[in-house]
Design a protein around this nucleic acid. Structure first.
Lengths: 147, 147
DNA sequence: CTCGATGCAAAGTATTTGCACCTAT
DNA sequence: ATAGGTGCAAATACTTTGCATCGAG
């Protein structure tokens, strides 16, 4: 994502906060920019370490509190990959993807498949179920690890 | 599942244990039968409470240790429904199903869809990925909760 | 009789919360 | 000025582990 686009997102975040009387503090800005500085999935711990290496010290509590806000504001999505802690990824409008998770090297490959999306909608219809979100994960070995 | 079938599974479990020099203790038998006495998804805590109500006291540690064994022996499958703790379900040979999870009442609806399964295989081919297992979950509102 | 199993309590992980002090608005 | 935010340490929730004792094979 370009800096330009990140700034647009940042404004959306500021607006979100302002609209409910919350504040855009230096800590929140620091976390916001670190989160959008990378495009990989990450965990709370990764974020903490990344900030430390940049000599930007923010407490664990604030990181968790801010991640929660970023999920509520629609900037992040929480994903659980069979582990007991959360992973986060950016939300990109109009794009849904699923994951292939390699049990060999831990690599996470994203893919999109329109046909699967449509079939999921059909399943919902069949059960009169109103879908809010969905996720699909395939665990196995990636091409490299199969060799 | 009929008692007859459960006994067959129990034998498989005994064999599994025997084959690696492990023992079929009264505690393990107690847990085994409770696990197969119901067909719903359950959590470690449910199991503990269920046993308590039956005046069968088994320690939490043993429950966790035995659940791990039942997963390894292929009797149970571990599923995570967006919460941070595990849910378990029986493994039935040759049957794979996915889940609709109602965010209103917490109900979990199982469904199978052959077309989706086939498309998942195609995705794996596309990425030269060797699938070991997969799961799909759709979160939303069930028919009852939509009213 | 022996090695694995059990219960308990303590230790781990990942995350949340209470509180006194601080600061963006 | 004041409601909301921060860091810290303690609390929580779920699960695992160390250890002394027990019991299945």
């Amino acid at each position: 994502m370009s800096d330009k686009k990140i700034q647009v997102e940042e404004q959306r975040f500021k607006d979100y906060l302002a609209s409910r009387g919350l504040k855009y503090t230096p800590e929140r800005r620091t976390i916001f920019w670190r989160v959008f500085a990378t495009h990989k999935h990450f965990e709370a711990e990764d974020l903490l370490l990344g900030l430390r290496q940049n000599h930007q010290r923010v407490s664990k509590a604030t990181i968790y509190r801010t991640l929660t806000l970023l999920v509520k504001s629609g900037h992040l999505r929480e994903v659980i990959f069979g582990e007991k802690h959360s992973h986060y990824e950016h939300v990109h409008a109009n794009e849904h993807h699923d994951h292939l998770i390699c049990s060999g090297c831990g690599k996470i490959i994203e893919f999109t498949d329109e046909a699967i999306e449509r079939l999921q909608d059909k399943v919902c219809l069949r059960y009169k179920f109103e879908s809010e979100s969905h996720r699909m994960q395939i665990h196995g070995l990636c091409a490299d690890c199969r060799k």
